[in-house]
């Protein structure tokens, strides 16, 4: 039908729809390109502003100095623990689907106190950045299941992995872990809600639900026998970071424990940040919302018109 019409009215009909579409395509392209150019300009100017501040030194330097990595040590006479992660930063790019953190370390025991004593145990904790979370509880209202109650937790680690060389219960009692703030149960503050005070049972219900949901999503992990020794001094542990983890710096802590005694500990930071296109899009979406919205519409319009052009041509 279309072909017949084209043939009947000759060249003019052939040219007209194409030139129309060419104009739409050009307009769409110009809009998209302008938005993209503006986006890059904002991104570039923001980056330049970051670099010009003396407080944030370039990444290459901050990754190597211990102070910048937040390294802290504590130890008893003669015994210390040193550790590091294979990759000191985790990049969230468009292909990010979780990461594997390889942590390794060594025990320095210049007194040879291990002779005749119980073996060492190493516990590794990787903690994500804190966030405020709201837990909602559904109740049946007129046959429908509706969120009716809620409570919020402040400073909840978005991710927490606890790995140990032996089952935690065999290494020490629960009093030891709560004293040293090891384990997610010992890190959570009690929930609150705006209106009235929560009863003890309600608080317990919310706290249990928080742990249950976080564990289900793979964000709270506890793995025994997952710190492996290589000989007597070298150890390593691998931690899987799920893709749903909140983007933000992580803290790695290594504890050296023997006979319910904290012999030494080591703390350092693992950088985790968005990079490349993900960084650009996140900055646009949250700092230049109008521009991001216009960009989304321009892309959508260009995609829709472009596709119809392609299919119109191939349909002949």
């Amino acid at each position: 039908m279309q072909r017949a019409q084209n043939m009947a009215s000759g060249l003019e009909a052939e040219r007209r729809p194409f030139s129309r579409y060419a104009i739409y395509a050009v307009v769409g392209f110009v809009l998209g390109a302008t938005a993209l150019a503006a986006a890059f300009y904002f991104w570039w100017s923001q980056n330049r502003a970051n670099v010009s501040q003396p407080s944030t030194s370039p990444a290459a330097v901050s990754d190597t100095t211990e102070a910048a990595r937040g390294v802290q040590r504590s130890y008893v006479e003669g015994i210390s623990v040193e550790a590091d992660v294979a990759a000191r930063s985790v990049a969230v790019t468009s292909s990010f689907h979780g990461a594997e953190i390889v942590l390794f370390g060594a025990i320095d025991d210049s007194n040879f106190s291990r002779i005749g004593n119980a073996p060492y145990d190493v516990v590794v904790a990787i903690q994500g950045r804190d966030e405020q979370v709201v837990l909602r509880k559904k109740n049946n209202v007129a046959g429908m299941w509706i969120n009716t109650e809620s409570a919020s937790f402040k400073d909840v680690p978005s991710f927490y992995a606890l790995q140990s060389s032996r089952p935690l219960a065999e290494i020490a009692g629960s009093a030891f872990y709560s004293k040293h703030n090891i384990g997610i149960e010992n890190l959570l503050s009690s929930p609150s809600n705006g209106a009235g005070a929560l009863s003890a049972a309600e608080r317990k219900g919310y706290a249990e639900a928080l742990l249950r949901l976080k564990k289900k999503n793979g964000l709270y992990v506890e793995r025994e026998n997952s710190v492996t020794f290589n000989g007597r001094v070298l150890f390593r542990s691998t931690i899987d970071l799920p893709p749903s983890v909140l983007v933000g710096n992580l803290i790695a802590r290594v504890y050296l424990i023997r006979d319910e005694e904290m012999l030494a500990s080591y703390t350092s930071k693992i950088r985790m940040e968005r990079q490349g296109l993900m960084r650009l899009m996140h900055q646009l979406a949250f700092s230049h919302q109008l521009l991001y919205g216009i960009l989304a519409v321009a892309l959508a319009a260009a995609a829709g018109i472009g596709a119809s052009m392609v299919f119109r041509k191939s349909g002949h």
Partner: peptide, 12 residues
Amino acid sequence: ELYSLSGIAGGG
């Protein structure tokens, strides 16, 4: 599961 979890919007 009666409970659900959400981060604070804009907190990130």
